[in-house]
Each structure stands twice: as structure tokens, then as C-alpha cells.
Design a protein around this nucleic acid. Structure first.
Length: 452
RNA sequence: GUGGUUGUAGCUCAGCUGGUUAGAGCACCAGAUUGUGAUUCUGGGGGUCGUGGGUUCGAGCCCCAUCAUCCACCCCA
């Protein structure tokens, strides 16, 4: 027999963890519903075509692809070999694989909107809490299967949606006890403007990749990377001035106006100003170095950092994308969305001990097994207790009480109920409080009331 | 994809410069204690030391390969 194990980056969750995770899910879900979002679920697998090319080159590499069935059929043998040839050259081939596990929730959502455009009422506000899979190398806070919680609004360009989503972040983190989170905000238009000022909008990707690393590697290494990516010293000088912008949000906006002088810059600036004006309570920081990897963002972008005293990457992010469904043939559906990284939020909350004590509800009472006849009698009593919404169980076999007590301790059960021959005769049960050790006789009729 | 770490009982780990029969704690089972637990005490079961090869009189320990793992980079939540 081989030792059982899990595939890399996959996890089991047992009761305690699930209850804590559900606490996070329920909090997020309630806020989503409170803001008028409605639920959506999409399948684990999508057609490979739906996903490929949407996440950049690196993203494509990290999509989990599912091998076609029936490759061993002689009819398909040649095709399969062709497909394999292509696969070894790094091209994916429908001869070998045509389905894949979903990589995020946004693209399947866009696919759904495109397919159901006629049936949906716009603006369409949906939330989605599901697993996604990435063939990434796992490490701390990063898994191959993880849960995303997304909320998106499509069919509206109004910036009030951005404000609303910032409000969602605020409500959720306040309720989870992470009120001192940091919401960073920027606009892709500012970044585009910077690229234009450097001479070409083509430079946008190179610039964003480099400056995104600023807080990690420092200004000198960013400059080195920019140089390596082919930028000249004038361009790098401009970018350095851009990165050196600091101060309050208002000061940052003023300084960016001095530095960048074109249409995208002023558009980006007024977007940021609008959102900030309506989010005064939310502790938002403008961060011009914020870029975000996904290349479909076009307007405001968000990223949530854990409180400063814990070391954790971003615990959420999002932004505006103007034409996501166009990829699927439906143009002119602007949208904006945010995502919560539940697994990381979990780790942060664990570190800061923010989970409420009363999450581990468990079992209220255990009926001791005092013999075959006795336990069958007690079973009927137990069913009445259960019918009244009190969770309880009976010890599975007649054995000495020490064992039954130890079992109850381990499962953190509050009451032990003893119904033996004596109790049956006297029509009352011995109820022992396992936390205090106190016990008393309770008539069968009063049991439910006593346990409540 | 790149670099490093670790792999010994169900779990967490110890095991000295290579030397008899590989240890501890937790968990499990039994007893002290046949209707009152969390403590304590006694005893017990459990291992092809990740896998394959090599060096050696002799390998858990050294060498090579391989698989798995965790961490970091890349990228990202």
C-alpha cells in the first residue's frame, strides 16, 4: 500500500478550519447581498479557448489543462500524437486537451454575461464565491486550489460603482476586525499617461512590471530593470520623478498634474479625485506604483494590503475593465470588480487572533450508553431533544463510563446525560455539566428546556 | 521555469566523528478503577529510516540519481 498524500498545493479542511472559513465567507456574502449583488456559480471547467490568452503568457502557462478522454481509442491515436507533438512545443492543442479548470472568476463571468446578454438586467451586479486553480509553485499563502470571492458590476461606467466597491471592502474588513487594512488605489490611465509621456503607449507593460516591484526591490533596481527593458535615461528620469511623488492624497494629485500633462493623465486624475471625495471615511491611499498584473484593467485599480503589522501580500484587488465581454463578441459592456483573497485573509486573521470564540459550536449533549435496553430507551428521548433543535449524540457502544467521558471531553461537549435502569424507573435523567462537574436529576419532560 | 530546505512510528521530532536489537513526546489499546472524566502510575502494539543504486568489514548517517515536501525568485490571491 502506498502512503496517502495530497497533490501539491492542495489542502484538506477539517471542522475547525471550515467553521472559521465559513465565518469569512458568510461575512463577505452578507455584505455583497447588502449592497445588492446577486449570486452566480459557474462550472469548475471551462473550454480551454475561453481561458487561453486572457491572463497573459505567464497566466496561460499556469492554467490547469484537462486531458481529453478517449485518447486510447485507435481512431484517435494519430490525432493524439499530433496533439502531443504540439504540446511538447508549448502550444496547446484541442487534439489533446480542450477543457481546463477555471483560473479566476472574472473571465468565466464575462463568458456568462456574453452568453446571457439578452436575459440579464443591466447594470448586472453579481457576486461569486468559488474555487479556482492555478498550476503555480505553492509557497506561503499561495496554493494551487483556492477560493476567490468576487463582486462585479457590469453595464455601467458610473464611477459611483467604484465608490460602492470601496464601501464593500470597508464593510467587510470592519466586520472581520481588520479595520486597519490599507486600500491602495491608482488609475491605469495615469500609468498610460506615463507611458505616453515616455514616448509610446507600447511601453506601458514594461513600465508597469518594473515599477510594481518598487516596494520590494527599491528604486535603484527598478531603474536597472527599466534600463534592461530598453528605456533611455530621459525616460527613466521621468519615471523616477513619477515614483518620487509622495505626500497626502491631495498633494499627490497636485504633483501628478505638474508631472504628467495629457488627456489620460487628467482623466485618471479626476477619476481618482471623484472616488476619494466620496470615500472620505475609508482610509484610501493613492499609490502611483500600484499597477496590477492582469492586463484587462483600464481605469481605477484597487489593491488591499493587510494591516502593517503582519507580513502578507495583497489580500484583495480589483479594478475597472472596459471591454471584457468583447473578448466573447459582446462589445460595450464596461465593468468594475473586486476580489477577496480568502485564504490569505484567513492567515492574517489567524495571526491576529481575530476569529470569534463562539465559532466552534459543536455538540450540546451526549447521551451515555448504559446498556442495550437502556440506550434504546435513551435514544427515543434523544430524538425528542434533537427535534427541538438541540444537537446531541449517543455514545456508540456500551463501555465503561471513563471512556465515554473522555470522548465527550475531546469533542468539547457541554453536557453528559445518563439514562440507566435506575433513571428509567424514576423517569428522570442525570444531567452532568462537563465544564463545571455539577450534576442534577432532570425529569424527561424538562430535559429540552434544561439544555436550551 | 530557477535556486535552496527537509524526508526516521498514525502525528511532531531526536539519533554524536559511520559501529550491537533505531529512540522520545503525543495519539491508540489494556490494567490500577464493573455508574462518574479531564491528573497520575504500569504495561502493550506499532518502523523495508522517501525510493533506487554506490562506497565500506559495517550505512538512518557518506556519494550519485530519483520522487516528494516546504521556502524564496518569477508571477500572483
Amino acid at each position: 500500500m502506498t502512503k496517502p498524500s495530497l497533490p501539491q498545493g492542495m489542502r484538506d479542511f477539517s471542522a475547525e478550519t471550515i467553521r472559521k472559513r465559513n465565518h469569512i465567507f458568510n461575512t463577505i456574502k452578507n455584505v455583497f447581498e447588502n449592497y445588492g449583488f446577486e449570486p452566480l456559480e459557474t462550472p469548475a471547467m471551462e473550454n480551454l479557448d475561453t481561458l487561453m490568452g486572457k491572463y497573459g503568457e505567464e497566466g496561460d502557462r499556469l492554467i490547469f489543462k484537462v486531458l481529453n478522454n478517449g485518447l486510447n481509442d485507435p481512431k484517435n491515436a494519430e490525432k493524439a500524437k499530433d496533439g502531443f507533438e504540439k504540446a511538447t512545443q508549448g502550444k496547446s492543442s484541442s487534439l489533446l486537451t480542450e477543457r481546463a479548470l477555471k483560473y479566476d472568476l472574472t473571465i468565466p463571468f464575462a463568458r456568462f454575461v456574453a452568453m446571457n446578454y439578452g436575459q440579464l438586467t443591466f447594470p448586472y451586479k453579481r457576486y461569486q464565491i468559488q474555487q479556482v486553480w492555478r498550476a503555480d509553485r505553492p509557497q506561503k499563502g499561495r496554493y494551487r486550489e483556492f477560493t476567490q470571492c468576487d463582486a462585479d458590476v457590469v453595464g455601467s461606467s458610473n464611477l459611483i460603482n467604484e465608490v460602492e466597491l470601496a464601501g464593500v471592502y470597508h464593510s467587510v474588513f470592519a466586520k472581520l476586525g481588520l479595520g486597519n487594512y490599507i486600500l491602495k488605489i491608482n488609475s491605469r490611465k495615469i500609468l498610460s499617461s506615463l507611458a505616453e509621456m515616455c514616448g509610446s503607449s507600447e511601453l506601458l507593460t514594461d513600465i508597469t512590471i518594473a515599477i510594481d516591484k518598487l516596494d520590494k526591490i527599491g528604486i535603484e533596481k527598478v531603474k536597472a530593470e527599466l534600463e534592461q527593458r530598453g528605456l533611455n535615461s530621459t525616460q527613466i528620469g521621468l519615471i523616477e520623478n513619477y515614483l518620487n511623488i509622495s505626500g497626502s492624497n491631495t498633494e499627490k494629485l497636485n504633483k501628478i498634474t505638474e508631472l504628467l500633462d495629457n488627456t489620460s493623465a487628467s482623466e485618471g486624475k479626476s477619476e481618482l479625485a471623484f472616488v476619494l471625495n466620496h470615500c472620505e471615511k475609508y482610509n484610501i491611499d493613492i499609490d502611483f506604483t500600484l499597477a496590477r498584473g492582469l492586463n484587462y484593467y483600464t481605469g481605477i485599480i484597487f489593491e488591499v494590503k493587510a494591516p502593517l503589522n503582519v507580513q502578507m501580500g495583497s489580500i484583495g484587488g480589483g479594478g475597472r475593465y472596459d471591454n471584457l465581454t468583447e473578448l466573447f463578441g459582446v462589445p460595450n459592456v464596461p465593468g468594475v470588480g473586486i476580489s477577496f483573497g480568502v485564504d490569505r485573509i484567513y492567515d492574517v486573521m489567524e495571526e491576529l487572533k481575530l476569529f470569534p470564540e463562539n465559532l466552534q459550536s459543536g455538540i450540546q449533549a451526549i447521551f451515555f450508553n448504559m446498556g442495550e435496553k437502556e440506550s434504546l430507551f435513551a435514544y427515543k428521548i434523544m430524538q425528542q431533544v434533537r427535534d427541538n433543535g438541540i444537537s446531541c449524540e449517543m455514545f456508540h457502544e456500551f463501555t465503561k463510563m471513563e471512556k465515554q467521558f473522555k470522548y465527550a471531553d475531546k469533542k468539547n461537549i457541554n453536557f453528559a446525560i445518563i439514562i440507566g435502569s435506575k433513571e428509567i424507573e424514576e423517569k428522570n435523567a442525570v444531567v452532568k455539566n462537563l465544564k463545571t462537574g455539577a450534576q442534577e436529576n432532570i425529569g424527561f419532560g424538562e430535559l429540552v428546556e434544561y439544555l436550551k
